[in-house]
Nucleic acid binder design. Structure first.
Lengths: 245, 245
DNA sequence: GGGGAGAGATGCCGC
DNA sequence: GCGGCATTTCTCCCC
């Protein structure tokens, strides 16, 4: 274990990315307090001083420290510890190592960013550039607008000159989406002195929950079933392979 | 690289936890589509067949596959790939390996669960058992109650027999907390035919945002500044160590 | 399984 | 830094 600990110390100083498989205990003190009893875990310390503690299963880390955390190995009569402190966020972690299975490391280069398609923003873009998806005569004049009455996905007018406020959801629209739409329209009506009858509210989403539909009808809003766009090439399920980019 | 790939294949079959440091490209197709250009990453495949792709920095994985995903190494004229498929969730990932820096592995034993204190539930428990924290004469009669008018944190009566509905927030209370409280009270008043004037709404949180405070005053509710409890022993910042549990 | 709500949510952007 | 909001949110619990 001492060789491993020496190696970890050295790697932490070099600011390498370090992976440790270990049997350990973990204490955390910050917004909450937590204690993780002795057991097998994988610890990753990244080059930006992020620390992740992963259980043998599950997607999310069971404990973590955010970027720019200080990490120090401390050996004393009670055992061998990794003590971590984030002064800015005022949180602390302490890991007691009982056994170390392996230590791996490498200096990774900063990576490129991910390109994602099919988000809510892509949906509002799609509607903005293809207004017929809502209805004939719909004229959008802004999207993703931060106004003093809130953040509106798509904003425009219909064939009869009525104001149209559209709230997009990439998946199910629930009652929260309706109250979000209602809040925008309420503030809009109040601040501009427009009669409520000249504003239409539309939820654009693939589907809507029963509760949300009820709430929507109460407010006199409309639902338009629209799927989020996927610009990237499709996975070819016959060939079981992904496509050239 | 071929040795590494052979090792990964073997380890995937043995269902070990595998850590790979690699220069790679990643495609994902599921609820969204994404493409991650060539760069350095750390890949973790867990024993429950979870796959994580981590950038050299940041807390969250940039791509992931959930539990029970199938993973297969595929070598063809286009290169060496890890192809992953989750039939249940209908999502797919493809990783093209350009270089492999290291491969590590170990068979970890399932770990114990974490113990957390300082959550919203702990807060409602604390208020339930220490009602004077709200005010003298407050008598709670339920907590964390799922009712047909919603999920109420603490429910009780005050010294004058008025009904008290308390919504707890472990951190800042924002306008959503107020509308949540309003929704409960509105439904309660409607379903029980109680006059609105005989129900008091209280937000219990360490702090409240300006917007939320305005909204709270409009509805005639009250704010009580309360911190979430932390039962576990405190981190001693002088001694820089944690304590016996 | 859907629905409602919390989370050490995280992360992004705008003011 | 706060605010408002999306997220392959995740997770839990109830109906």
């Amino acid at each position: 274990m001492n060789e491993y600990i020496g190696r970890v110390k050295e790697l932490l100083e070099k600011k390498n990315l370090v992976v440790i498989a270990t049997e350990c205990e973990v204490w955390y003190h910050g917004k909450v307090e937590s204690y993780l009893p002795q057991g097998d875990r994988v610890i990753v310390i990244k080059q930006d001083r992020v620390l992740l503690v992963h259980q043998p299963s599950g997607v999310n880390p069971i404990n973590y420290m955010k970027e720019n955390t200080e990490h120090n190995i401390v050996e004393n009569s009670e055992g061998i510890f990794l003590k971590s402190k984030n002064t800015l966020l005022k949180d602390y972690m302490e890991i007691k190592f009982h056994r170390i299975y392996f230590v791996s490391s490498f200096l990774l280069e900063d990576s490129k960013d991910i390109i994602v398609s099919g988000s809510e923003k892509d949906m509002s873009d799609m509607i903005y550039y293809n207004p017929y998806l809502i209805e004939d005569g719909f004229k959008p004049f802004s999207r993703e607008e931060h106004t003093r009455f809130g953040f509106i996905d798509v904003f425009g007018t219909d064939a009869n000159g009525k104001i149209v406020v559209i709230e997009c959801k990439r998946d199910f629209a629930d009652f929260k989406a309706i109250s979000q739409l209602h809040r925008y329209i309420h503030k809009l009506v109040k601040s501009k002195g427009i009669p409520e009858s000249s504003v239409r509210g539309i939820i654009a989403a693939p589907r809507i929950s029963d509760n949300a539909l009820m709430m929507l009808k109460e407010y006199g809003y409309e639902f338009k079933s629209i799927n989020p766009p996927k610009y990237l090439e499709k996975y070819d399920s016959n060939q079981k392979r992904l496509f050239e980019y």
